[in-house]
């Protein structure tokens, strides 16, 4: 059993759980849709196409972030019933494989939400992107991974705290601010076509590499925190 095999096993388990319950995806999807509708009340997307182009990249990222946060807590709460988490701690498998598997599963869920949400966004906000749209295929997965990898880690960190629902956003939002900013800037660059997203993609890549490494290295400490 090598490392990749452990990761795949965890990933398969999480995907199967989600396939049977569909809790996270349904919740996230509807929540993101609600955020889109609520934000449409803050401004008039139909009458101001230029302004819409300038801000809708940011709105999409924020909607995705909020939606992801609703699912992240649940993803670890599953492991607490029947003391599964203690079983994981006793297991000989590397702890970080559990983390990577779960982060990958969360990443796939959030990406699925984005795939549905992006067309809805385009229709509801009458969006006509002016830049090279294919670059979104790089930006969105990178940004999503940046948010999800830290989100999964901090959800595990706040798992046994007194009020974990409150704690996760308090920790996750300040730490992932650079990633969120880079994701927003890059997608705005693509939508408006006014500047190149290259610099911000580089920032995202650097952020992803640094924080994925940190999360993988420190997960063992968090899992056996007490």
């Amino acid at each position: 059993m090598n490392y990749a095999h452990h990761v795949l096993t965890h990933l398969r388990k999480d995907l199967r759980l989600e396939w049977r319950t569909k809790d996270s995806i349904n919740g996230m999807l509807f929540f993101a849709l609600l955020v889109v509708v609520v934000l449409a009340m803050a401004f008039d997307p139909a009458s101001y196409p230029t302004m819409t182009r300038q801000i809708s990249g940011g709105l999409l990222c924020v909607a995705v972030l909020f939606a992801a946060m609703t699912a992240l807590n649940q993803s670890w709460a599953r492991e607490t019933s029947n003391n599964v988490l203690d079983a994981h701690r006793l297991s000989a498998a590397p702890a970080s494989a559990l983390f990577v598997g779960k982060a990958l599963a969360n990443f796939l869920f959030v990406m699925a939400v984005e795939v549905v949400l992006a067309p809805i966004f385009t229709i509801f906000y009458n969006l006509h992107p002016l830049g090279e749209t294919w670059k979104l295929l790089i930006i969105l997965p990178l940004g999503t991974w940046a948010l999800v990898v830290n989100g999964t880690f901090f959800a595990a960190l706040s798992l046994r705290s007194r009020n974990r629902e409150t704690l996760l956003p308090l920790v996750l939002l300040p730490i992932s601010m650079p990633a969120l900013l880079a994701m927003i800037q890059a997608s705005t660059a693509v939508l408006t076509g006014e500047f190149e997203p290259t610099l911000w993609i580089k920032v995202l890549v650097a952020y992803v590499i640094v924080f994925t490494t940190t999360c993988v290295l420190l997960f063992q400490t968090i899992l056996s925190a007490d």
Binding site: S158, I222, D226
Partner: peptide, 25 residues
């Protein structure tokens, strides 16, 4: 805030990990 909200007995570990993340940021 995390120091205040985290469960007793874990505060030190959790906040140490968070401090490393913050310093990287």
């Amino acid at each position: 805030l995390v120091r205040r909200l985290s469960a007793t007995g874990q505060t030190a570990v959790i906040s140490a990990v968070l401090a490393i993340f913050a310093a990287i940021d």
